[in-house]
Write a protein that binds this DNA or RNA. Structure first.
Lengths: 164, 164
DNA sequence: GACGTATACTTGAGGACGCAATGATCATAG
DNA sequence: CTATGATCATTGCGTCCTCAAGTATACGTC
């Protein structure tokens, strides 16, 4: 038997004790959940969480297309992050690019037929995973409560310009 | 306006209808908060969030030292993640390594004097930032509520399946 | 029209971190 | 003592993502 009987969670050796606050739990929960969800999503559908996120945004968007910059803002990635992510989705044929007629600076990301099928296929299992690992932990009221509490947190500092 | 059994979607393709569930808010809040906190921490103290996390763990640990593997588990990094992170902290002189007398496989990470000063220095501003961006959004009761809700989420699947 | 500034997007460089493979060491059963 | 199987740690490799810089376009002002 190993010599260490020490816990995995020493509580208060020194002063104040190990911080186990809402914030720390938030951080840990995020790490654990995203790792598990992302590994399942990757294994079943070859998508990252961000891929899925973007595909869902497009799925619900008017005309199934969005300006790349709006896409970036809505999933909280940087402009360059979106470029590289869409590179991958384009290479996989899930998303196509389309130039904007009225403004040559902008490019749209459009969900392809294949992308539609992909997201409709992946949605089911992924939502089930989210439900298993996240949603099912709470009663309906608690879920609302949690959503409400989380909604108070600051969202975007990214050089806000809210108009189109 | 009744809640759908199936999900998460309360949207029609009208000007950006997208699922805005507790889970999505959780993801977005995490992205926004960590980005802001990490950028402040980096600017003021040249530490990443994970660096800080590890230093705090050591700060509260018995003898200000921990086995690397326990450190990894407590901050939810992989073993290799901890190795590389500690590489950095060692290079900066904030942490030292120490071999274990009774088990040659394990190495301890020990907080140095310089590391002590660093964490005591960084703690104040970082906790203030967390309070500003996170804690101050809630009343004391809500904070407890949130901590309670977050505590229900699964934490570590790390390594083998320990069936009860 | 020329000029200045804001916006959209891309690219190069680099950091953080996971996974899988490897080496070293311990523990235990034969 | 040796073979077998865990456990701790490190390393190679790849991925995701950010920042800073660069390019192209739009638009307001003179």
């Amino acid at each position: 038997m190993s010599s260490q009987l020490l816990s995995t969670q020493a509580s208060s050796p020194g002063s104040g004790g190990l911080p186990d606050t809402a914030w720390v739990r938030f951080l840990r929960a995020h790490a654990a959940l995203t790792r598990e969800l992302s590994s399942r999503l990757e294994a079943l559908h070859e998508l990252t969480l961000s891929d899925f996120d973007v595909l869902v945004q497009l799925y619900y968007a008017e005309g199934r297309r969005m300006r790349r910059i709006d896409l970036a803002r809505s999933v909280l990635l940087t402009a360059s992050g979106i470029t590289r992510l869409l590179d991958g989705l384009e290479r996989s044929g899930l998303v196509a690019r389309e130039r904007c007629a009225s403004d040559a600076r902008v490019t749209y990301a459009v969900l392809t037929e294949s992308g539609m099928r992909k997201i409709e296929d992946a949605r089911e299992s992924h939502l089930a995973d989210i439900e298993e690992l996240f949603g099912s932990r709470f009663s309906p009221e608690e879920r609302d409560q949690l959503a409400d509490l989380l909604a108070r947190l600051p969202l975007a500092h990214t050089s806000e310009a809210c108009s189109q």
